[in-house]
Simulated scan of single mutants.
Amino acid sequence: MTRRSVFGSVRLGYVVIESARFSEWRRFGRDAIGMHLDEPLSDVMRFRLDEHECRFLLQRGPAEDVVALGWQLDDHDVFDEILTRAIHSGVPVTEGTDEEAALRGVERLVRLPGPNDLAQELFVRPRPGEAKLHMAARGGFVTGDLGMGHVAITSKQPLQMRGYYTNVFDARLTDYIDETIDGVKLKIRFLRVNPRHHSVAIASVRRLPMNPIRTRVQHLNIQVADLDDMTAAYRRVKQLGFTMALGIGQHTNDKELSFYAQTPSGFEWEVGWNAILVDESTWEPRTHQGISIWGHNPEGQSLVDKIKQVKFGAQSLLQREDPVRALAGVGIPDN
């Protein structure tokens, strides 16, 4: 069977979050981060960044976590190619209901199981939002052909997770970062599915099968078009009393200026500006030492938070992590 590459025809389209903390999320997403908030329903809340009807879907539930990633595909040929890969691998494919598609602002979706119990949803056509955008981020957000940002995931099986995104979306390795935090050595792999520097980052503890993060994702990222909107969001997060995880700084690899706030559900939310794009004709992966050129200093982590991370890490040693091996293969060896 001839395999057609789908690289460049995929972008992160939306994120689904399960939470019971709607009032806190309303203040966080609309008032602090500056996104457009649709008129919320009793069990559903939707945020927009642009003309798409939905970029973040919150559904009421106990998880306090991201539960699904929605991937926008260029056309139905790409859709069918990825679907064929999943079906030929024997992976169960679930057709989304009309109600699920409507909540996500898409015409049709299918769902694949993903690593770390993070569902992967595929769609082609997003629906445009009808209401006029009302956002504190006056310059808007960087989306379009690049998608809406990235997700960072911690894993005990990083090579299998990289294999999954490579086999499903033809993701390419952009670079690595080696970092030591509180004495724990981490390796982070950055994967791209289009010219955005990365849409998925995979972090792992070196030489130890543990995961110190409770949630399926460590952080979500969105990118503003204007520097003033990033610094204004930073001020609003602090003024409204939300926890700042990392202050403003600049990354070593994608050169993005950003900060990290803690969401009401516990994972982190990065707001960034001016990340570089990848030139496929010249790019070569390399390893960077440390996540930051400057800044990104911890601001909100207490001793209790650190103890919780140690506890989660210890518990994870005994927990199984499903890499969806049928699509991950044996994993991608690091170069």
Rank of each mutant, 00 (worst) to 15 (best):
D43C: 10
P323W: 03
M135E: 06
G183M: 10
N335M: 12
A225L: 13
I276D: 15
Y234P: 02
C54K: 04
D305G: 12
D322G: 09
G61C: 12
V6D: 00
R286W: 13
D226P: 01
I248V: 15
P126F: 07
E256G: 03
R30Y: 03
D178G: 10
E39W: 07
I276M: 14
I213L: 07
P62F: 08
A245T: 13
T174G: 14
R30A: 06
A203L: 13
H296K: 11
L103K: 09
S89N: 10
L240V: 06
I188S: 15
Y14E: 00
G290D: 08
Q160K: 15
H134E: 14
S155K: 02
F169Q: 01
E130N: 13
H198Y: 11
I188R: 02
R26A: 11
I291W: 04
S199W: 03
P113V: 06
S265V: 04
L220F: 08
L246M: 15
G70W: 00
T287P: 04
G295R: 06
K132Y: 05
S316C: 09
T215N: 14
I33D: 00
V205M: 07
Y164Q: 03
R138D: 11
G272Q: 04
A102C: 11
L83N: 04
Y14T: 04
H134S: 14
S199Q: 13
R104D: 01
A275E: 07
L317D: 07
L73R: 02
P323T: 09
G163V: 01
A275S: 15
P323E: 02
F47V: 04
L277G: 09
F123L: 07
A201Y: 02
L146H: 06
N274S: 15
Q157R: 14
R192P: 05
G105F: 02
L112T: 02
T263D: 03
N221T: 15
F169L: 11
G70L: 04
F141D: 01
V124Q: 04
A136L: 14
V168R: 02
P115S: 11
E24Y: 00
V151K: 04
P126N: 07
R127I: 15
D98I: 14
D279W: 09
F56T: 02
D77I: 10
M1Q: 11
K187L: 14
Q157W: 00
Q72A: 11
Q160H: 14
E53F: 12
G8Q: 08
H150R: 12
A20M: 13
V184Y: 07
L37T: 03
